[in-house]
Amino acid sequence: MTSRAPEPVGAYPYTRRVGNLLFLSGVGPRQRGQKAIPGVELDDEGNVVSYDFESQCHAVFQNVRYILEEAGAEWDDLVDVTVFLTNMKDDFPIYNRLYAEYFATAQPCRTTLEINCLPTPIAIELKCIAAINNEQ
């Protein structure tokens, strides 16, 4: 468990380590201890009225960093990132630009998929694998 990343929305761990591989469960932009999602405006029924995708990207990357650090890994240990977007057409250019900034030195493999929806009203989620030193 981590004290900085958002609480899981189900019965699963943040990470699972197998040998020198660290598998992260899907990570979204929510903030620990808050129900509000960065950059998301909801109506009274919980439907998304508008969202700031760039805010969500920054929050997701920060949450991944928190989880890695608390598991004894670093950003540069990432070897594979699977990205789930709910609006590829509008959000991919923003995501691609920010990804290039955040991953300027770390160059993990990447797969980006558009999906219909995520379990909470978010527009992005990352699934990551890191390779860490066995001595950590």
Results as ranks from 00 to 15, higher is better:
residue 1 M to Y: 13
residue 5 A to V: 06
residue 5 A to Y: 01
residue 6 P to H: 09
residue 6 P to K: 00
residue 7 E to V: 07
residue 17 R to L: 07
residue 19 G to S: 13
residue 19 G to N: 12
residue 20 N to A: 14
residue 21 L to V: 12
residue 26 G to P: 13
residue 27 V to H: 04
residue 29 P to C: 07
residue 34 Q to C: 12
residue 39 G to S: 10
residue 41 E to M: 15
residue 47 N to E: 13
residue 50 S to L: 03
residue 51 Y to A: 12
residue 52 D to T: 06
residue 53 F to N: 02
residue 58 H to G: 04
residue 58 H to L: 02
residue 60 V to R: 07
residue 60 V to P: 00
residue 61 F to V: 02
residue 62 Q to C: 08
residue 63 N to C: 09
residue 66 Y to S: 01
residue 68 L to H: 00
residue 71 A to N: 05
residue 72 G to F: 02
residue 77 D to R: 04
residue 77 D to L: 04
residue 79 V to M: 03
residue 81 V to E: 01
residue 84 F to V: 13
residue 84 F to D: 13
residue 84 F to P: 11
residue 92 F to P: 03
residue 99 Y to I: 02
residue 99 Y to L: 05
residue 100 A to I: 04
residue 100 A to R: 14
residue 101 E to F: 03
residue 104 A to D: 05
residue 105 T to Q: 13
residue 105 T to P: 07
residue 109 C to N: 15
residue 109 C to Q: 15
residue 109 C to V: 14
residue 110 R to W: 05
residue 112 T to F: 09
residue 112 T to W: 10
residue 113 L to Q: 10
residue 114 E to K: 11
residue 114 E to C: 06
residue 115 I to V: 11
residue 120 T to Y: 13
residue 121 P to W: 04
residue 126 L to F: 11
residue 133 N to T: 05
residue 134 N to S: 14
